[in-house]
Amino acid sequence: MRVPAFADRDWRTGWAFAAPGLLTLAVVMGFPLVYAALISLSSLTLLKPMLQPFVGLKNFATVMADPLFWSALWLTIKYSLVTVLGEFVVGLGIALMLNRTVTMKPVYFAVLTIPMAMSPVSVALIWRMLLQPNLGIANQVMESLGLPRIDWLGNADLALWTMAAIDIWQQTSFVVLILAAGLASLPRDPYEAAEVDGATPLQQFWYITLPMLRPVAAIAVIIQLINEFRTYDLPYILTKGGPGNATEVLSFFAYRRAFLGLSLNEGAAAAFVLLLIVLGLTILFFATLERRR
């Protein structure tokens, strides 16, 4: 006779252990999420803080009718792809170098994790000072090298990429750590066989390292994509979305709707669109994990 799951002792013990965590998650994540969903379907603003009347998908339609929403979405996609690509390329290079390093490895890792340990707000403030066009160090270095001064954050064509470079500087160490761990776990046998067959280091990298590293690399890329889609701190501190709308990413757009426009309902709708994108990436992340198994 089959014993019902809830009558099984292990089943009950498992749930007993998981219950506090699940309950905490339900309170700190589930409730705000449901409440935000309700707000996005309501007429609630900061000036009229009442959920009713519910307006269905009107807030989503209003937000999507704004050309700035699409511009923010496009900027977010461009920004996320460029930063993740940059972090991956630089991160992989550093991880490969560290993989070959024998001495002082812990020191290198410790130094590399410093940017990651800093809060994005501190990073933004520090870089804002360094890149200050008239008194900042970056332009003084440029000048001493005989190069022209650059308006890093005030030039509409450059501001987004300056922000992306700062982001890459901070986030690359995370990618390095994941890829370095992946490289350290690769088996030695295929390399020994390749050497016997006369494969060059480049061929070994292309035909052995990259394919075997792919599952780990995919995880790193997807985690970073999710992070980058949610970027808010850097534009808030560095540019306030400007010059013009040159750095107005989707999360900043949602913030402006909610707190400057006092329309929490429209801000919540914009945030939900962002959530859907991040949710899609998360599903992709878990699908990748499953494939790896």
Binding site: Q132, N134, D151, W152, L153, G154, A156, A159, G242, P243
Partner: peptide, 12 residues
């Protein structure tokens, strides 16, 4: 104005 005026605040 100074270079970078478009990203400058009162402090700058």
């Amino acid at each position: 104005a100074q270079q970078g005026a478009l990203s400058a605040t009162l402090d700058d």
